[in-house]
C-alpha cells in the first residue's frame, strides 16, 4: 500500500519535471531550429538566431533596461528595512500602516500600471499637479512619455509597488529575533540605533536573501506593468527582454527568434540564481 501512497507524489514530481525542465529544454531546441512562422520544424538551423540577436540593437536596449531594473533591489530593500524598523518601534496604528504599505503589492500590475499612467499624465495627472501645488512646477516632467524619463518613471512606480513587500519580509525577520537578546542588549545599555545595527540587522540574513531573490526574479521577468504603461515605448526605450520576447514571438510570429531571447534571459537568471543556491546550500 505504501507504493500507492507514493503514486501521487511521483505523478506530481513527473508533471513538475515535464513542465519545467522538459519545457526549458524544448525552448532551447526551438531556438536553434528552423521553425518559421507557424510552420513547426525542429531541423537544426545553427546559431543564426543568436547571431541575429547579438546584431539587433533592440536586444541591447532590452538587456540594458533589464539590468537597469536591478536598481529596484537596493532601493526597495533599503526602503523596506527602514519602514520595517519604524513599524517595529510600535507606532500607533501599526496594523493600518502595515496593510497600507503592503496593499500595492496585492494589486495586479495591470491595475497599477493603468493607475500610474493616469497619475503620470503630464497635463492632467496627479504627479505634476502635486509638484505644481508645492511650487515645484519646474520639476513637473513628461514622465513615461519621453525616452529620457520613461525607465525612471517605471522604476519609481515599481519601487512603490515592491517596498511594502520587502517591508513585510523584514518585519517578520525582526519579529523573529529572540526577545531575550533584545532585553540583554537593553540591559547592557545599548541605544536604539546600536540595538538595530548590532543585534537585529545582523540576524536578518535570510530576509535579505529572500527579498533579493524575489526582486531579482521580478526585474528579470518584468513585462505586464511595462506593457500596459508604455507598450515598450516610446520607440524601444522601455523594452526589456520579456517585452522583446513577447513582440518577436506573438506580434511577429518568430517563434525561434523569441525562443533565443528567452534562452538569453534564462542564462541571466541562472548566472544570478546559481550562486545564490550555492551559497545557501553551503551554509547548511
Amino acid at each position: 500500500m505504501r507504493k500507492l501512497v507514493l503514486l501521487p507524489f511521483f505523478l506530481i514530481l513527473g508533471l513538475a519535471f515535464y513542465f519545467i525542465y522538459i519545457a526549458v529544454g524544448w525552448n532551447a531546441l526551438v531556438s536553434v531550429s528552423q521553425w518559421s512562422g507557424l510552420r513547426v520544424s525542429y531541423a537544426f538551423s545553427g546559431f543564426e538566431h543568436y547571431t541575429e540577436l547579438f546584431d539587433d540593437p533592440v536586444f541591447w536596449t532590452s538587456l540594458k533596461n533589464t539590468f537597469l531594473l536591478f536598481l529596484l533591489i537596493p532601493i526597495c530593500m533599503g526602503l523596506g528595512l527602514l519602514l520595517a524598523i519604524l513599524l517595529d518601534r510600535s507606532v500607533r496604528g501599526e496594523k493600518v500602516f502595515r496593510n497600507l504599505y503592503l496593499l500595492p503589492f496585492a494589486l495586479s500590475f495591470v491595475v497599477t500600471a493603468t493607475l500610474w499612467a493616469w497619475m503620470y499624465s503630464p497635463s492632467t495627472g496627479v504627479a505634476n499637479s502635486i509638484l505644481r501645488l508645492l511650487g515645484l512646477g519646474s520639476l513637473a516632467g513628461m514622465w513615461h512619455t519621453t525616452k529620457d524619463s520613461v525607465m525612471w518613471s517605471i522604476l519609481l512606480a515599481l519601487i512603490w509597488q515592491f517596498s511594502g513587500y520587502t517591508m513585510m519580509i523584514f518585519l517578520a525577520g525582526i519579529r523573529s529575533v529572540p526577545e531575550d537578546q533584545v532585553w540583554a542588549a537593553a540591559v547592557d545599555g545599548a541605544s536604539t540605533s546600536q540595538l538595530y545595527a548590532r543585534v537585529i540587522v545582523p540576524q536578518l540574513g535570510p530576509s535579505f536573501l529572500t527579498s533579493f531573490v524575489v526582486l531579482v526574479l521580478f526585474s528579470l521577468k518584468a513585462f505586464d506593468f511595462i506593457w500596459v504603461l508604455t507598450s515598450g515605448g516610446p520607440g524601444t526605450a522601455s523594452h526589456t527582454l520579456p517585452v522583446m520576447m513577447y513582440r518577436v514571438t506573438f506580434e511577429q510570429t518568430e517563434f525561434a527568434y523569441g525562443a533565443a531571447v528567452s534562452v538569453v534571459l534564462l542564462a541571466v537568471v541562472l548566472a544570478i540564481v546559481v550562486p545564490y543556491l550555492y551559497l545557501s546550500y553551503r551554509r547548511k
Binding site: T145, T146, K147, S231, G232, G233, P234, G235, E251, Q252
Partner: peptide
C-alpha cells in the same frame, strides 16, 4: 505582414514623440 506592422508601430511611436 505582421512583422512590418509590429516594427512600424515602434518606429512611428518613436517619431510621434520626437
Amino acid at each position: 505582414p505582421e512583422k512590418v506592422v509590429s516594427n512600424l508601430n515602434v518606429i512611428i511611436g518613436d517619431f510621434a514623440q520626437n
